[in-house]
Design a binder for these strands. Structure first.
Lengths: 154, 154
DNA sequence: TGATATTATGTAGCACGCTACGTAATTTGG
DNA sequence: CCAAATTACGTAGCGTGCTACATAATATCA
């Protein structure tokens, strides 16, 4: 009669809590959680052109999701989306002054949010948490649980 | 120049991966991840009346979110939503035959999904994972990081 | 009793995930 | 060189989160 531990539900709750805290933190910059993460990525790669495809791969998101995010960020004046001169399929993303300003004022917040998540953790616990998160993510993405007793019948 | 570990981003990715795996798993039952969790909860409490408020508190969701979920589940014929006779503000939620059937066929899947997440974990790692998840969730919900150097000025 | 507060829920509108499908540009192969 | 595959992106439509506001029923209290 051992009680089942609902990891999935707890992860959902944790994700929501983090997401909301980030949204509150970024609200003064007119940014949301994901948009803040996007800006940080764009800022870290300002030495080379960035395309929607890059964001899609780095954040492991579908391209319509990235597309929507970028549209909203463009509408709010954080980025410019221009056609690429070499490959006309691609859109080039450029940061505006408003974005640079937001990054300057908000980058510390982004790091603090992550630190806050592991507040009170020892270094060892932080490493373990990271390691377990990665392994769980791997398990979720590539289910290999032999409980199913279903071998490849191909 | 130590590299920052983006816990928030990894948690987002993990949550998405789990959510998608659950959706795929439940697709044959005409259910989604969250709807499956709702059904499980309702099934566990079939000895007493269940109200939207209960789901809201247990799953830590806002009431419009619960409301939407229930509407879609009602539309698909898994539940009945009827007014409560004692307190006419409340809606009573009842499982249909279709729901009982889905639960019978799908409950094992729900547990497997959670097991799959921690596949390859030792018992100790499972416990540690759970413990760290809870502490992180607590940190996210109740930020108390003294990095801010802002004491209560009330 | 009658005004006020609280509680449970509904609706509107938005952010952010997804799949499925469509289109335009580039690349590849005969 | 031209047809076919691939690649990058757009749009439609949906599920699941949220906040803000509205409404109806119950509870509280002078």
């Amino acid at each position: 009669m051992k009680e089942k531990i609902p990891y999935g539900r707890k992860i959902k709750a944790l994700n929501r809590a983090f997401h909301q805290a980030a949204n509150v933190s970024f609200a003064s910059l007119e940014l949301t959680c994901t948009q803040g993460m996007f800006l940080t990525f764009l800022d870290h790669h300002r030495d080379r052109p960035v395309y929607p495809k890059d964001l899609e791969q780095f954040f492991e998101l579908s391209h319509p999701t990235v597309s929507g995010l970028l549209s909203r960020m463009e509408a709010k004046g954080f980025i410019l989306i221009t056609p690429d001169t070499n490959d006309r399929r691609c859109k080039r993303i450029t940061l505006t002054e408003k974005a640079h300003d937001a990054i300057k004022r908000g980058l510390a917040q982004m790091e603090q949010l992550d630190e806050q998540l592991v507040f009170g953790f020892t270094e060892e616990e932080k490493n373990q948490f990271w390691s377990l998160l990665c392994r769980a993510a791997e398990n979720a993405a590539n289910p290999c649980n032999p409980l199913q007793k279903e071998e490849d019948h191909a």
